[in-house]
Design a binder for these strands. Structure first.
Lengths: 186, 186
DNA sequence: AGATTGTGTTTCGAATCGATATTATTATGT
DNA sequence: ACATAATAATATCGATTCGAAACACAATCT
């Protein structure tokens, strides 16, 4: 066996998933980006559910993101809500229809088959290695890490729940399990 | 630690890589698809370096792929060569310029940093697990597996080298290490 | 108050993409 | 041998996407 970089292997998996995703998208009448947006919104908390954060995450321009969102709103996949304190900001959230189509996209044949084969090869037991790989990637991507809230160095546990050490705001269980734009590695 | 599916972890890595790739693309003045095409061409052997195979791989329509290729030819990233025996077919190949831009795209900061962190965590030692994961994914995607030639069940070793059991043709060392459209899992 | 920064939107032109039709070549069937 | 079908690639067209730039508005800073 040649010495292949682990990262190279992950890249190939990513390519495979990408091409599968593309097929799924055309079936559902969507562009890959749209699915990425829905996926992101299903994973982000209230610090990162804004168009600006999405722009950072996707690496597109604000104008483009704005249009993409317009389309998703028109299709009733997402909705916009004005921020109470900062009236420039808008919070995005998935609507039931958006959730439904996301779920449909995720349950592709590839995903189901792969999960089965993973189980057969006992890959599930090596979960920790994949977790390490993912956090390595996130660490490498520090500029905008978009990590899980509860793995952030500002995540603190207080007497009556969780708190964000950066904003001093209380966090719900759900918040803590989602992607945050301000995520900092320990 | 919650029970997170391994596949879910891989998906997130893919998402991270995708967003990084997108940024890189805009820097280089390309679309993500273009990079995917160049990447594919750098990995495919002579059974899968045609527009039709590429169409299968990407999951797009033939017309779209045709146009994408037109653009890449115009930019001198790739070139087309007519097949000697079947004059309907065209073989695609990377030109030096295409190779250069692909290399530039691959050496992103993220990749370099991630590789370092991987090494630090001794993830390189668990290479086999990632190999298994990749082949699992390929197996799950049997419809068009696009696997490595030398891992195919038709790959045979003869007295004077390698042969494809399907086409009965001899294979070079280079062929055997590239992606083939007709790849079948053992 | 005025300048600056940071939101999100709008407009416009270029590029992408899918659907459909078309051409050219090979394969098949009688 | 000839017609028909199948396959590879291309061309055309319209809808959609995307990025660049200009814009409007709110918050912040000095």
């Amino acid at each position: 066996m040649d010495k292949v970089e682990v990262f190279e292997l992950i890249e190939r998996m990513a390519a495979l998933i990408r091409s599968e995703e593309r097929k799924k998208c055309t079936e559902l009448g969507l562009q890959p980006v749209h699915l990425q947006v829905l996926d992101y919104l299903s994973r982000c908390n209230r610090y990162s559910d804004t168009p600006a954060a999405l722009t950072n995450y996707l690496g597109m321009t604000r104008g483009t993101v704005s249009q993409t969102l317009l389309l998703l709103v028109k299709k009733s996949f997402i909705k916009k809500t004005a921020d109470a304190s900062d009236r420039r900001m808008v919070h995005l959230s998935l609507l039931p229809e958006g959730n439904a189509i996301l779920k449909k996209a995720r349950t592709s044949e590839l995903f189901i088959q792969a999960a089965l084969i993973f189980k057969k090869h006992n890959l599930a037991n090596h979960q920790d290695i994949f977790v390490k790989a993912l956090t390595s990637l996130q660490k490498a991507n520090q500029s905008h890490s978009f990590g899980l809230c509860k793995t952030c160095k500002y995540f603190t546990i207080t007497a009556d729940g969780f708190t964000c050490g950066l904003t001093k705001e209380p966090l719900s269980q759900s918040d803590s399990e989602k992607i945050c734009q301000e995520h900092s590695i320990l």
